[in-house]
Amino acid sequence: RERTTFTRAQLDVLEALFAKTRYPDIFMREEVALKINLPESRVQVWFKNRRAKCRQ
């Protein structure tokens, strides 16, 4: 699998959701994945990595 490159628009949507909740449930992830045209698994990993970035 190639490394996913997120567009600015995708990142804006993800960051906005992250500001609301750091742990979105499966339904929220599915919804945002459809909206920004990414698989739900990529959204899940993005959140995992974003939380890790926050902890540093």
Rank of each mutant, 00 (worst) to 15 (best):
R1K: 15
E2C: 02
E2W: 01
E2L: 06
R3V: 13
R3P: 13
R3G: 14
R3H: 13
T4N: 15
T4S: 12
T5K: 06
T5G: 11
T5D: 11
T5H: 11
F6Y: 13
F6W: 10
T7V: 04
T7I: 03
T7N: 14
T7A: 08
T7D: 10
T7L: 02
R8F: 02
R8G: 08
R8N: 15
R8P: 15
R8M: 11
R8L: 07
A9E: 12
A9L: 08
Q10A: 00
Q10E: 04
Q10D: 04
Q10K: 03
L11Q: 15
D12Y: 04
D12H: 07
V13L: 11
L14W: 00
L14N: 02
L14I: 01
L14E: 01
L14P: 00
E15C: 02
E15Y: 04
E15V: 06
E15S: 00
A16V: 11
A16Y: 02
L17T: 14
F18Q: 02
F18W: 14
F18L: 03
A19E: 10
A19S: 12
A19D: 11
K20Q: 15
K20A: 06
K20F: 02
K20V: 07
T21E: 10
T21I: 07
T21N: 13
R22F: 04
R22G: 05
Y23C: 11
Y23L: 03
Y23D: 11
Y23S: 05
Y23T: 10
P24G: 01
P24H: 01
D25R: 04
D25A: 02
D25T: 11
D25P: 03
D25S: 10
I26V: 10
I26Q: 10
I26N: 08
I26D: 09
F27L: 13
F27N: 11
F27I: 15
M28I: 04
M28K: 09
M28G: 02
R29I: 13
R29Q: 11
R29L: 13
R29C: 12
E30N: 13
E30T: 14
E31H: 07
E31P: 00
E31S: 10
E31W: 05
E31A: 11
V32P: 02
V32M: 04
A33M: 03
L34W: 07
L34T: 13
K35H: 07
K35A: 09
K35R: 11
I36C: 15
I36K: 02
I36S: 05
I36W: 04
N37M: 07
N37S: 08
N37D: 14
N37F: 06
L38C: 15
L38D: 01
L38H: 06
L38W: 11
L38S: 09
L38K: 08
L38M: 14
L38V: 13
L38G: 04
L38Q: 10
P39E: 15
P39R: 03
P39W: 02
E40S: 08
E40K: 06
E40Q: 08
E40W: 03
S41C: 06
S41L: 06
S41F: 09
R42F: 09
R42M: 14
R42H: 14
V43G: 02
Q44R: 08
Q44L: 10
V45D: 11
V45N: 15
V45W: 14
W46G: 00
W46R: 02
W46E: 00
F47C: 03
F47T: 00
F47A: 01
F47Y: 02
K48R: 10
N49P: 10
R50Y: 02
R50P: 00
R50A: 14
R50F: 05
R51D: 04
R51E: 06
A52R: 10
A52N: 10
A52Q: 06
A52D: 14
A52P: 01
A52Y: 07
K53W: 08
K53Y: 05
K53I: 08
R55L: 14
Q56G: 13
Q56W: 06
Q56Y: 12
Q56M: 15
Q56A: 14
